[in-house]
Design a binder for these strands. Structure first.
Length: 120
DNA sequence: AACTTGACGAGGG
DNA sequence: CCCCTCGCCAAGT
């Protein structure tokens, strides 16, 4: 299993490309969907190389609802700004509400702790 | 080959 | 909630 493998990356892109504007997914969520051979870390590596591909990489964030790139792109948080332009609200600590913005691909049954709240 | 570093995340204190 | 540790695994030195 190698991140350099085109087919390996393509499986990740296929999912990310389905995330609609204004919605997000976490690295771990994508990893658990793809299963064997995929972990949150490897998804991060794939996304790192996704810049040149036709993929809305900004819609993939960490499980805390924050952008892991916040400390990489200075002085401004590019990824967060891109998402804010799509309508995603981030609090003063750089976190958004995953219950509200998390996207679930077709056919994927969310785990109990991932299900959006029935009561707003 | 050994060791360090992350676009990560769950669990415990 | 925040902080820390540990498991994870590919890449870079």
């Amino acid at each position: 299993m190698n991140v350099d493998d085109k087919n390996y990356r393509e499986k990740v892109y296929r999912i990310v490309r389905e995330i609609p504007r204004g919605k997000v997914m976490t690295y771990g969520q994508i990893a658990s969907i793809l299963g064997e051979g995929y972990t949150a870390r490897t998804i991060g590596y794939v996304m790192h190389a996704a810049e040149t591909e036709n993929v809305p990489w900004q819609r993939v964030i960490n499980s805390q609802g924050a952008c892991s790139t916040s400390k990489l792109f200075l002085p401004y948080n590019v990824q967060q700004k891109m998402l804010e332009d799509e309508g995603v609200f981030f609090d003063e600590k750089g976190r958004c509400d995953l219950e509200k913005y998390r996207w679930f691909p077709e056919g994927y049954e969310p785990e109990a702790d991932e299900q959006p709240s029935l009561f707003e």
